[in-house]
């Protein structure tokens, strides 16, 4: 791994179900951030949406995502009150399977609006499950100091993991 790519803190592994994971006091010494998640929800659904709050903001979000479901493809957008991080497995997907999500946040200390991109895929032993590519934006011009990851329904189950990385210019 390049020495410009460093883990911030340690990987958080959920011990018993939690509603959200917050990274606060994010150092302002990197150029970009990356969040890597392996997660599953306990909600009674095939999948649920994982969401992002930047600096705890609950407004100013826009996004566009492209998805494939195993039998169809399409596009959509999510609400303005949360950032969209794609779908993750929930309780109606095959037991013990977890979704994989990569979130990239460039120029997080800039005085411009904050963007992010996501690639995510859920898992299940059936025809329908989702993979998505997302581009999102929040209108805040403040540097990002905290990230909250939560769910549209349910809690993150035991053994879900969350890692934050900082990436510096070479």
């Amino acid at each position: 791994m390049a020495n410009t790519y460093e883990q911030i803190g340690t990987t958080q592994t959920v011990g018993s179900a939690v509603a959200s994971v917050t990274f606060s006091d994010i150092p302002q010494t990197y150029t970009d951030l990356k969040v890597v998640v392996s997660a599953r929800s306990d909600a009674a659904a095939l999948t649920v949406v994982m969401r992002l709050l930047i600096n705890a903001l609950t407004s100013g979000y826009t996004d566009k995502y492209l998805y494939g479901s195993g039998s169809a493809a399409g596009s959509g957008s999510y609400g303005a009150t949360n950032g969209f991080l794609g779908d993750i497995n929930a309780a109606n997907s095959t037991a013990s399977t977890f979704a994989s999500t990569d979130v990239y946040i460039p120029n997080y200390t800039s005085a411009n609006a904050k963007s992010w991109s996501v690639d995510d895929v859920s898992e299940t032993n059936a025809t329908t499950i989702y993979m998505e590519l997302t581009a999102g934006l929040n209108s805040t011009t403040a540097a990002i100091t905290s990230l909250v990851l939560n769910l549209s329904a349910g809690n993150f189950v035991t053994n879900s993991t969350f890692s934050l990385y900082g990436i510096k210019k070479n």
């Binding site: 958080q12 939690v18 509603a19 917050t22 606060s24 006091d25 994010i26 809690n155 934050l164």
Partner: peptide
């Protein structure tokens, strides 16, 4: 339910 809060400077969880 609970939430996890990670302070990235102090490392406190």
């Amino acid at each position: 339910p609970t939430r996890i809060e990670v302070n990235c400077i102090t490392g406190e969880v």
